[in-house]
């Protein structure tokens, strides 16, 4: 009887060893690094911490970072949803290529991504030189930062949606068409509820990356304090200034955003898994 329920790795000592090693490694590789950030940030006490955060440049960097994320996320939300709808609901030549194309930002080193934009939109760039004639400057101001951030974060929403929408198929939506519903209505009433949590998940990931992007932004930002300095750039700047505590104070804000992201993600996953697994079937077959 007992052997019927037995699965690989159920032997107590194996089980304990595996759990213990997983816990220890997670502690060492993930939890302690996180703790270090906060320990360093608070190493000179709360007052210094508050002072570092309350600094006008830090506040501005926080504002700019949130602002950039707030522009990036909706843009990629629209793009990701459109793309996912396109490649999962229709067949057309070039579809496979399109799916691979959106992986490019994963394959491009962020510094190179920044460089690409600089070469294109900078004063001497192909597009930039033309824009300069109309006195439009994109690089070294917030539009440039938003542009590279959109670039590095554009795969997340689409990548979350495509497998799910592929798996769900199109029956319900086609039923909607037969019933004469408008396209927008079908999307809102049928598709959206189905992909809601994956969409939120994609947004959470996009947001996390948008807030934390360093390499690409540092190339196009111009690093003007109180103007184009984002929070990750600010961390580096303080670090260069020997203000290690200050650097970690700003870093701890980013870590806090990371933790919020993780909590949001865990919540989304929990919501996502609830309707799908009402009761796990045990040894049913």
């Amino acid at each position: 009887m007992a052997s019927q329920q037995h699965r690989v790795g159920d032997t107590p000592w194996i089980r304990r060893t595996l759990i213990a090693s997983a816990l220890i490694l997670t502690m060492l590789m993930l939890v302690i690094p996180l703790v270090v950030i906060f320990a360093q940030a608070l190493s000179s006490g709360w007052a210094t911490f508050a002072e570092n955060i309350g600094n006008e440049y830090t506040l501005h960097a926080i504002g700019l970072t949130l602002f950039v994320a707030a522009l990036t996320v909706p843009l990629n939300l629209v793009f990701g949803t459109s793309l996912a709808w396109l490649v999962t609901r229709f067949r057309f030549p070039g579809r496979k290529l399109l799916i691979t194309l959106i992986d490019i930002p994963f394959a491009v080193s962020p510094v190179v991504a920044g460089l690409l934009y600089l070469l294109l939109y900078g004063r001497n760039g192909w597009v930039g030189s033309w824009l300069t004639e109309y006195d439009i400057q994109l690089m070294f101001s917030w539009p440039g930062i938003v542009m590279v951030t959109v670039f590095v974060t554009c795969p997340f929403v689409a990548r979350e949606l495509i497998p799910l929408m592929q798996q769900q198929g199109t029956e319900e939506e086609e039923a909607g068409v037969v019933l004469g519903a408008s396209g927008w209505r079908i999307f809102r009433r049928i598709t959206l509820p189905n992909i809601k949590w994956a969409l939120i998940y994609g947004v959470v990931l996009t947001n996390a990356r948008a807030v934390g992007e360093f390499g690409a932004v540092s190339v196009v930002s111009g690093n003007i304090r109180g103007q184009t300095n984002t929070l990750p750039l600010h961390v580096e700047l303080l670090y260069q200034d020997y203000n290690i505590v200050g650097a970690f104070a700003s870093a701890s804000l980013l870590a806090a955003i990371a933790i919020l992201t993780l909590v949001a993600k865990a919540f989304v996953e929990w919501r996502q898994s609830r309707p799908e697994h009402p009761a796990p079937e045990k040894g049913g077959v």
């Binding site: 004063r123 930039g128 400057q137 070294f140 190339v219 690093n223 700047l237």
Partner: peptide
């Protein structure tokens, strides 16, 4: 007076590319 600080090669590149 606004300040921008980075490695000076990077700064020169930025100025050439339009950092005013």
């Amino acid at each position: 007076i606004k300040q921008s600080h980075a490695g000076s090669s990077k700064q020169a590149q930025a100025i050439i590319q339009g950092l005013k």
